[in-house]
Design a binder for these strands. Structure first.
Lengths: 112, 112
DNA sequence: TAAGTGTTTAAGCAACATCTTACACACTTT
DNA sequence: AAAGTGTGTAAGATGTTGCTTAAACACTTA
């Protein structure tokens, strides 16, 4: 998960993931989409994504085709989803309590 | 989303998020959980998380209580979930096609 | 086998992130 | 008001990241 989240923290790499989500794309074709950075830079991002097991590579002749490897995101998604949803339901629960008893601010006490 | 994902990329910050998921926790109490790093380091992580809008702060007397702000994760979760699930269903679809017609490797052609 | 095409690796650099120590701030208690 | 407690900020050292240019590798075609 650590590698996956670190990899996904970079906006260029996220854009690459979107590109290779639905179909295989060659390194060159990917690089074309990022005119502002050099080919080697893209290649390095691809290496990072591969190392994080977020993409698969297929070599075909001269080229290398990249494609999303969604399983690689599983742990990261689970972590964030857990943080997100269980906490949201907690908030909802509190809202109900708030509605039930309109106790003014009780300050710290409860947490001490 | 960018800030949120960058914030979550750090393992210490992820651990902090877990700590403050279910209840408010004071800065000092958080710092106690990380004996290996200094208090200021923890404070800086808390600042990062606050800036990324991943936690809320409540000042009470001397202390500051932190708590998860799950809404801050919404975009990040949505992004990863989209990449994850839509791509998984794609794989499933392909598996069906694979089962239907056992065409041997057709190599690149389709992608050219 | 030589030249061409697609891609990665190497080396170096500038920017950024994370940690530490020292200090400052804010609130509390005496 | 002074001392104590909880916390954040500043400054600087160190490691990491992401980029660039130059070179190398791998496969294809003439």
């Amino acid at each position: 998960m650590d590698d996956a989240l670190r990899a996904v923290a970079d906006p260029t790499r996220r854009a690459i993931l979107v590109l290779v989500r639905d179909r295989e794309v060659s390194a060159g074709e990917i690089a074309e989409r990022f005119p502002e950075i050099s080919r080697p830079a893209v290649s390095q991002h691809l290496r990072t994504l591969t190392a994080a097991r977020l993409v698969d590579v297929r070599r075909a002749g001269n080229r290398r085709f990249y494609r999303l490897r969604p399983e690689g995101l599983a742990e990261a998604v689970t972590f964030l989803e857990t943080m997100w949803s269980t906490s949201l339901s907690r908030l909802q629960h509190e809202a109900e309590q708030e509605e039930r008893a309109h106790t003014g601010d009780q300050d710290v006490k409860g947490s001490l």
